[in-house]
Amino acid sequence: MDIKACGSVPTRRAPEEWFTGTVWQDPIIQAPAPARLISVVVHFEPGARTAWHTHPLGQTLYVVSGSGLAQVWGEQIREIRTGDVVWIPPGEKHWHGAGPENSMSHIAMQEAADGSAADWMEKVSDAQYSGAERAEKS
Rank of each mutant, 00 (worst) to 15 (best):
M1Q: 06
D2N: 04
D2C: 01
A5K: 13
C6V: 11
T11G: 03
W18A: 05
F19I: 04
F19N: 05
G21D: 08
V23M: 05
Q30L: 00
Q30M: 04
A31H: 15
P32Y: 15
P32G: 09
P32H: 15
A33S: 12
A35D: 09
I38T: 11
I38L: 02
V41G: 04
F44A: 07
P46G: 03
P46R: 06
G47Q: 03
A48R: 04
T50L: 01
T50G: 00
H55P: 02
Q59S: 08
Q59W: 03
Q59L: 03
Y62E: 06
V63I: 15
E75I: 06
E75T: 10
R78K: 08
R78A: 01
E79G: 06
R81Q: 02
G83L: 08
D84Y: 07
V85R: 07
V86L: 01
V86G: 00
V86A: 00
V86E: 01
W87M: 04
W87D: 05
P89H: 12
P90C: 05
P90A: 08
E92C: 09
K93C: 02
H96C: 02
H96W: 09
G97M: 08
G99M: 02
N102R: 14
N102D: 15
H106N: 02
H106F: 02
A108W: 00
E111Q: 08
A117E: 09
A118M: 11
E122G: 07
K123W: 02
K123H: 13
S125E: 13
D126C: 01
D126S: 07
G131I: 11
A132T: 14
A132H: 13
K137G: 15
